[in-house]
Design a binder for these strands. Structure first.
Lengths: 135, 135
DNA sequence: TATTGTTATACTCTATAACTATA
DNA sequence: TATAGTTATAGAGTATAACAATA
């Protein structure tokens, strides 16, 4: 991707590009934008505030307002004021939202398929290498 | 990211998320959107047609028209009709565009830094695993 | 006065459909 | 008629600044 990029860096670029493209496709095959699918992802049954979502999604709160607004209009999430502090909104995924999130996860075969090409020892190696790079 | 996602899949998600966020930052630190930086990337001195770019970037040609239009307005690429077939446009990066592409590459330290955490043997392992997953 | 979230606005990305110029 | 690219248009993502409601 860059001038004089090493072979390993190029492989990483290629892998990430393929991964991203596959996630985009999985989202759009289920009628969601990637951003919408990413927003449904962390809503794991607990309630989350708009600010928490903005932090998780690494974007501005005003952006979350819009994305959540579209998801809410489709009945995929709910937004209710926190009784303890009525400034705060509690966002929760609905059963429909959960279904769609599962459908996206099922469509997103890329990581499963690619990891399945590695034998047990290689999978363990990969986990070790990723942990080292992420630490 | 998904219901019941394996640990290895979660590590991949985390790595890709961090990689993408770092590329976005590197682009925006240099006054480019990620899409603009991605468009400058493959313009390696040869000439490319709009269609080729659309294929490389996995998007519609009308989208490339707009992105290239903005890059051209800033003097980062040039667009000239192919004398052999005047329907075709040859896109080339300018010296300013090259400078900016290098600046983005320099800012995008994430892959270099993370790979540098691995010793020589681990880097070789990673290359092997990526090749297997990309094949 | 400070904080949470929304609204208003502007720009970019993206695709589809209609169009222009060229072949 | 077919192809390369553009234009028109519309919807979505994104951020900044101004605002409302609540604390």
């Amino acid at each position: 991707m860059v001038t004089r990029m090493g072979a390993l860096e190029q492989q990483l670029w290629d892998f990430v590009s393929a991964y991203d493209a596959a996630f985009d496709r999985a989202s759009e095959d289920n009628g969601l934008s990637a951003a919408q699918a990413c927003t449904l992802t962390p809503l794991t049954g607990d309630r989350h505030t708009m600010s928490e979502l903005a932090e998780l999604l690494l974007c501005d709160a005003s952006n979350v307002t819009q994305i959540v607004g579209r998801l809410e209009a489709r009945g995929l999430v709910s937004r209710t004021p926190d009784p303890a502090d009525r400034r705060v909104k509690q966002v929760a995924i609905t059963p429909d939202g959960r279904r769609l999130r599962r459908a996206v996860a099922k469509s997103f075969t890329f990581p499963r398929e690619r990891v399945a090409r590695l034998d047990d020892e290689e999978q363990e190696q990969l986990g070790h290498l990723l942990a080292k790079m992420l630490s």
